[in-house]
C-alpha cells in the first residue's frame, strides 16, 4: 500500500472517531508528537510528587496526612499509566527516564515553584489539579487509544485530589485571621503559574492546529484557560478569597470573565530551566534514581538466579 493510501486510511479513522491503536499505521509526526506529549505528561506526574511530598510529614492532622499520602501515591500511578502508554509507541522506559534525568525532556513548569506553607497544598489541589483536570478530561477522547484509556483512569482518580485541596483551603478560610491570610497568600502565588499551565497563547502555539486536526487535542490552550478562569473565579467567592488580578472582570457580552495579561517572560524563564526550583527538582529525581540502583540490580540478579534454577 502506498503512503498516501495509508495516510488516507489513518485520517478516515480519525475523522470517524475510530481510535488509533499501537499496531495501526500512523504518520511519523503523529507518533513523535504523542511520544513527546505523553512522556512530558508522565514526567509531570512523577516530578509533581516532589512539591507535595515535602508536606506529608508536616500535614496538620492524621486525616490530612493519609489523604496527601494517597494523592502522592496516585500521582506515581498516573506516571506509570502514562509511561506505559508512551511505550506502546516504541520508546523504552529507560529512554524516557534518561531524557528526564538529563534535562532533555520537559515537564510541567508548575512543579518548579516551591510549597512554602500548608495552604500551598490546598492551592495545588484546587488550582493545579483543577487545571490538570481541565486539560485531561478532553484527553479521555484523544485519538490514540492507549493514551485515552490511561486518561480515563487518571481522571477517575483525580477528582478526589481537587476536592481535598479545596477542603484544605475552605478550612483555613473558616479559621483564624492568620489562617485565612495564609490561604490568600497561597492563592496569590499559585494563581498565575496555574494559568500558565495551559501553555502559550493560541497564536504562539505552533502545534495546536495539527493536534486538533488529528484529534489529539480537542480544545485550544486559550479555550481551556478561559474555562478555568470562569470556573475558579466563582469558586474563589465561596472561599472568600480575592484572585490576584486587577483586570479580572465579568464581560456580559462574551459571557466570560476578562482577565489580565500573563507574564510570558516568567513563563519562558521557568520553561527554560530558570524557575525557583528547577535544579532542586531535577537533582531530587537524579538522586532517587541513583539511590535505587542497587535495588534494580538486586531484583535483576534475583530474577536471573531463579530463572537459571528453573532450567
Amino acid at each position: 500500500m502506498s503512503i498516501q493510501d495509508l495516510e488516507y486510511i489513518f485520517e478516515e479513522k480519525v475523522s470517524k472517531e475510530i481510535k488509533i491503536e499501537p499496531k495501526d499505521w500512523m504518520p511519523e509526526t503523529y507518533r513523535k508528537t504523542l511520544i513527546r506529549q505523553i512522556s512530558q505528561h508522565a514526567h509531570s506526574e512523577i516530578v509533581g510528587m516532589l512539591p507535595e511530598g515535602e508536606w506529608i510529614t508536616r500535614a496538620p492532622t492524621l486525616r490530612r496526612k493519609a489523604a496527601l499520602l494517597a494523592k502522592v501515591q496516585d500521582e506515581a500511578g498516573h506516571g506509570l499509566y502514562l509511561y506505559a502508554a508512551a511505550e506502546t509507541m516504541g520508546i523504552s522506559r529507560d529512554e524516557m527516564i534518561e531524557q528526564l534525568l538529563s534535562g532533555k525532556a520537559k515537564y510541567s513548569s508548575i512543579f518548579n515553584y516551591p510549597t512554602l506553607t500548608w495552604a500551598d497544598i490546598g492551592a495545588i489541589g484546587w488550582l493545579v489539579d483543577g487545571a490538570a483536570i481541565m486539560n485531561q478530561v478532553p484527553l479521555c477522547r484523544t485519538s490514540y487509544g492507549p493514551y485515552a484509556r490511561a486518561m480515563i483512569r487518571v481522571c477517575k482518580e483525580e477528582s478526589f485530589h481537587q476536592r481535598q485541596g479545596f477542603e484544605i483551603l475552605l478550612t483555613l478560610c473558616n479559621g483564624s485571621e492568620e489562617q485565612k491570610a495564609m490561604a490568600q497568600d497561597a492563592l496569590n502565588r499559585w494563581w498565575w503559574p496555574s494559568l500558565m499551565m495551559f501553555g502559550p497563547n493560541d497564536d504562539n502555539s505552533p502545534h495546536t492546529t495539527q493536534s486538533i486536526k488529528w484529534k489529539i487535542k480537542r480544545f485550544t490552550n486559550d479555550e481551556l484557560r478561559q474555562k478555568f478562569v470562569d470556573i475558579c473565579t466563582d469558586q474563589a467567592k465561596i472561599l472568600g478569597l480575592t484572585i490576584p488580578d486587577a483586570d479580572l472582570k465579568w464581560n456580559n457580552e462574551k459571557k466570560h470573565y476578562d482577565f489580565g495579561e500573563i507574564n510570558w517572560d516568567e513563563f519562558w524563564k521557568v520553561v527554560n530551566g530558570n524557575g525557583p526550583c528547577n535544579k532542586q527538582r531535577l537533582s531530587a529525581r537524579v538522586a532517587a534514581h541513583k539511590n535505587g540502583e542497587w535495588v534494580r540490580e538486586a531484583a535483576m540478579a534475583y530474577a536471573k538466579r531463579r530463572s537459571l534454577n528453573r532450567l
Binding site: 494517597a70 499509566y81 530474577a303
Partner: peptide
Amino acid sequence: VGSLHATDAQMAIENARDVYTRR
C-alpha cells in the same frame, strides 16, 4: 487493564496491585 515493568512474576503481581487496584 494495562502494562508495567517487573523483573519477575511475583514483582509484576505486587506492582499490579499497587498500580491498578488502589481502589
